[in-house]
């Protein structure tokens, strides 16, 4: 991975009239594309991770591998456990049981800040721009290994001034790329919602991560900005980073994802490339709609399919309600 994010030599990316379709990565898995399929080169391997909130099992993943160097989308209905899985993988939450590795080293139970230092950074569903810091200060906060961030050496400007200038230079380059350079000295609180999303993503990139985890990067972003955000995510892949993102917008998933993992009721119910996954009847049932044929419980294997017709509507609604509560709890955390 290059340490700099070079200004793109094609200035055309500034305002693409129509997005250029970039080739998808293929041949990522071994054997049939079923839930928990082994990958050729996984960056994250999850084993038997389970997290319950009271009586509700929010996440119950038997086995999951995230392929390296490509863009993986994590989709699923509200309350499927996507954000909870994100929180678990990044050390912001602790599972009841299970283990997982990042880049070959076990990071189960490792605190969030150490996970981030290992090169796995995340963004949040509800954007966390540090409102009363300026945009450029937000960016500089993202850089790793700063000498001036240690208590005693921070008192000696000579020890960190040079490094700080380098970081600022890098921050300004990235801000220029994300079209935020004109705002660099404004408080982040003055940015629009979409600009905060951009800032949060740019700030995450300041740490030069190996894996970028984006929790709903497109939520609340207008269509024009969506296009440039998509391009930024595709650029990450070109620069050798791995991307894992949660998203509800199917067009976006189809457009940029190389691999799609579908979750429902805490489990991985399907995996595959975006086109075949969206043909999968289980996915259509669990997420894309048309659940008149099958109940969510059937998709996740908790009910027998023949009960589907007899299943009273009240029961379906109860499950949806439970799922909704789980989602709310997740957001409150």
């Amino acid at each position: 991975m290059s340490s700099e994010f070079p200004a793109p030599d094609e200035p055309t990316t500034a305002m693409p009239a129509s997005p250029v379709e970039r080739p998808k990565s293929t041949g990522l898995h071994v054997g049939d594309a079923k839930p928990g399929v082994a990958k050729i080169d996984p960056i994250i391997v999850v084993d038997g991770v389970r997290r319950t909130f009271g009586g509700l099992t929010a996440v119950d993943v038997e086995h999951l591998e995230i392929p390296r160097g490509v863009i993986t989308a994590l989709i699923g209905p509200n309350g499927a456990g996507k954000t909870t899985l994100f929180n678990l993988l990044t050390g912001f939450d602790k599972p009841n049981e299970g283990s997982w590795t990042f880049d070959g080293t076990s990071i189960s139970g490792v605190p969030a800040y150490k996970v981030a230092r290992m090169g796995q950074v995340r963004t949040f569903q509800l954007t966390k721009a540090l409102g009363l810091l300026t945009v450029v200060e937000n960016m500089k906060l993202g850089a790793k290994g700063q000498r001036g961030e240690r208590f005693w050496s921070s008192l000696i400007p000579a020890a960190w001034r040079k490094q700080d200038d380098e970081i600022e230079e890098r921050a300004m380059k990235l801000l220029a790329k994300f079209k935020l350079d004109a705002k660099s000295n404004d408080f982040a609180a003055s940015l629009s919602g979409g600009q905060r999303k951009l800032l949060e993503m740019a700030r995450a990139l300041m740490s030069q991560p190996k894996l970028v985890m984006l929790d709903e990067p497109m939520a609340g972003v207008n269509p024009a900005l969506t296009q440039s955000l998509l391009d930024h995510i595709l650029d990450l892949k070109d620069e050798g980073m791995t991307v894992l993102f949660v998203e509800h917008d199917m067009h976006m998933v189809r457009h940029i994802a190389d691999w799609v993992v579908v979750m429902a009721e805490g489990r991985v119910v399907a995996e595959g490339d975006p086109y075949s996954v969206m043909q999968d009847p289980a996915v259509i049932d669990a997420y894309l709609g048309a659940h008149q044929e099958l109940d969510l419980g059937v998709v996740t294997g908790r009910y027998a399919p023949e009960g589907a017709e007899a299943a009273p509507d009240a029961e379906v609604q109860e499950k949806l309600l439970a799922a909704g509560i789980a989602e709310l709890e997740e957001e409150e955390k």
Partner: peptide
């Protein structure tokens, strides 16, 4: 001196949102 150094920047970041700062690898 502390508050205009990167140390102070981290501290102000924590004031704004602790989780965001943890997600950036700061203890």
């Amino acid at each position: 001196m502390l508050m205009r150094s990167p140390w102070g920047r981290v501290l102000k970041g924590i004031r704004e949102d602790e989780d965001a700062v943890r997600a950036l690898g700061k203890n």
